[in-house]
Design a binder for these strands. Structure first.
Length: 548
RNA sequence: GUCCCCAUCGUCUAGAGGCCUAGGACACCAGCCUUUCACGUUGGUAACACGGGUUCGAAUCCCGUUGGGGACGCCA
């Protein structure tokens, strides 16, 4: 019998090959329906043998050998029809704060994976921690997902509404002898932990004195229900991203599944809900990887088939530190406020940890077409706002003018800028030129403000400095000249060129003062476009005003 | 501390033993384009963490070291 060490091959190879193997095994075996699958053989799952069942669950089925070259895609060439049930994924945030960018990516991957396989993508709100969950946070999460275009396919499941079911399963485990009542007080547990730490020994809970206890002899302490951890062997999880992950069962201890107040713990509730919701693929953050071993105890003790697991790496902040609320705009809606487009955020998030050759621009339909768990990397990545901003610019330039105009006007209003119908029309007219030179909606809004507002613009310092007496004289003269011009972009351009030719100046020498008069800034869209968008009356007003 | 996971330019990544003198993108630098600013375009700087193996050949497979992250709750 090889030792665990010896059979632990290199991460990379075992990762990829195990992922392939695992999923292929499941695919060829078909995913048994979860409904009642456990009940059929519930009787032969008694505690003494359940870890044997665990170790021989469907992951270990023999797998036909495939040469790497001819290997079909993880699922692509393994037609879905061959599977007994369609893919169902879920995103399961806890409503203790805003949805941050890491959660958004988890949701995105769940969504993409489900869509790619024509399956369903669900949402479950893990609100069993009543002290920290809030209705506002739930709403925030829903809003954020909606903004990202990641709303679930079915009504969200509130985990708190399922507590009776969680307790029922815990009791069933108790009845099967796979779990037991433990009468330790929180204080006693804390003491045990402190003691272990003082002795520099890893703390491992020992509940042997409670097992088989005569109820009459029980202390008058409200008990918790603890599940019996397997006592020998190891637990192996074929992770679709991380590869085959294993731990010696000696590392596991008897975890609490039902608190003394009768509410379930997370590790228990997740399993029951994922099973009942018939989730086939659990795609979540890396931080849950070691939890998976514990969750397997519940699956196995109930005789339920485990779902496929895929643990995606975490996102770190730009400085490499763990992503937190203290590091920039991590709340999803903060990105909206900063003027990022949801499709750009999704594209950026997708590329963080997932790649398909050199493709950088991956809009939603293409993402659905290409997305595969086997292409998800295993190392944590960092937020790079510069790249997100660049990508946002790409999407912005490709975006529909009407939509952008609406966004800009909304943001102008948000800023308290006054503008009328004419102003809105001017922004609309200038949008094709405006969007070429902005990377975010906020930049776009700032750049569009001069067009929306009525009357001569305020001059920014740089512009004011360039508005010399000579420039003013030029503007006065130019105003005369432009008076008879046909007010159409191409004609205006020709007139300006003629003017500068006649005056023996370069076009730039004429355009720049004009730009300042019209926009109040040294930077603007092409001057002919600005002139045309503003219209004769408004443009002449501004030129004359600047000419003094 | 124990267990688990990870490691290619500054950042995101491509890479399935020979196509690698390591490719792309962002950022940065220089040039071109140009009525400003952008866009675009041309070129440049820049990486296989380290040490051992295996092999004719290693970024790629194996072992170890170092570094980083995560989990160890009647939180999720």
């Amino acid at each position: 019998m090889p030792t665990a060490r010896a059979t632990t091959s290199h991460k990379a190879s075992r990762g990829r090959s195990a992922a392939r193997r695992g999923s292929h095994a499941a695919a060829s075996a078909g995913l048994p329906g979860h409904r009642g699958a456990g009940r059929a053989n519930a009787d032969d799952i008694s505690f003494p043998i359940f870890h044997r069942v665990r170790n021989e669950c469907n992951w270990n089925l023999p797998v036909p050998r495939l040469s790497p070259r001819s290997r079909p895609g993880l699922y692509g060439a393994q037609p879905l029809q061959a599977r007994a049930m369609s893919v169902r994924t879920r995103f399961a945030p806890s409503p203790t704060g805003f949805l941050h960018i890491g959660g958004a990516r988890t949701a995105l991957f769940n969504f993409l994976f489900a869509r790619h396989h024509g399956g369903e993508y669900l949402l479950r709100i893990e609100d069993t921690d009543k002290a920290r969950s809030t209705a506002e946070a739930v709403q925030q999460i829903l809003d954020s997902l909606a903004w990202l275009g990641l709303s679930p396919d079915e009504a969200p499941v509130m985990q708190s509404s399922r507590e009776a079911r969680h307790a029922e399963v815990a009791r069933e485990l108790l009845a099967r002898g796979a779990a037991y009542l433990a009468f330790d007080t929180p204080e006693e547990l804390a003491a045990m932990r402190a003691e272990a730490e003082a002795a520099k020994r890893p703390f491992k809970y020992d509940g042997s004195r409670w097992i088989g206890l005569d109820p009459a002899a029980a202390p008058s302490v409200a008990p918790v229900i603890r599940i019996k951890a397997p006592r020998g062997g190891e637990t192996v999880v074929p992770d679709l991203v991380q590869g085959e992950v294993r731990v010696a069962n000696a590392e596991l201890d008897d975890m609490i599944i039902l608190r003394s107040d009768g509410t379930p713990t997370y590790l228990h509730a997740v399993v029951v809900d994922d099973h009942d919701m018939r989730i086939t693929h659990v795609i979540r953050g890396d931080d849950h990887l070691t939890n998976t071993f514990r969750q397997c105890m519940v699956y196995d003790a109930m005789g339920w088939h485990r779902p496929h697991f895929a643990h995606i790496p975490l996102i770190h902040g730009a400085d490499g530190a763990k992503l937190s609320k203290r590091h920039g705009a991590v709340g999803v809606m903060e990105f909206e406020a900063q003027g990022f487009l949801p499709e750009a955020v999704c594209n950026y998030l997708l590329r963080l940890g997932w790649g398909h050759g050199d493709e950088e621009f991956v809009p939603r339909p293409r993402a659905i077409e290409l997305f595969d768990l086997k292409d998800v990397g295993r190392a944590a990545s960092r937020m790079d706002y510069a790249k997100l901003t660049h990508l946002n610019g790409v999407y912005l330039r490709a975006a529909d003018d009407a939509r952008l105009t609406e966004e800009v006007l909304k943001r102008l209003t948000r800023r308290g800028v006054d503008f009328g119908t004419l102003g809105g029309d001017r922004v609309r007219a200038l949008m094709p030129a405006l969007k070429e030179r902005a990377k975010t909606l906020e930049e776009l809004t700032s750049a569009a403000a001069f067009a929306a507002q009525e009357g001569p613009p305020a001059l920014d310092p740089k512009a004011a400095a360039q508005l010399t007496p000579e420039a003013k004289a030029l503007l006065a003269d130019l105003a005369q000249f432009l008076n008879d011009a046909p007010w159409e972009q191409t004609d205006l351009m020709n007139w300006l060129r003629d003017y500068s030719d006649v005056k023996g100046m370069k076009l730039g020498q004429v355009a720049q003062p004009l730009r300042i008069a019209l926009s109040g800034s040294t930077q603007s869209p092409p001057i002919d476009a600005v002139l045309a968008a503003l219209g004769r009356t408004e443009a002449m007003d501004r030129i004359l005003a600047a000419a003094g």
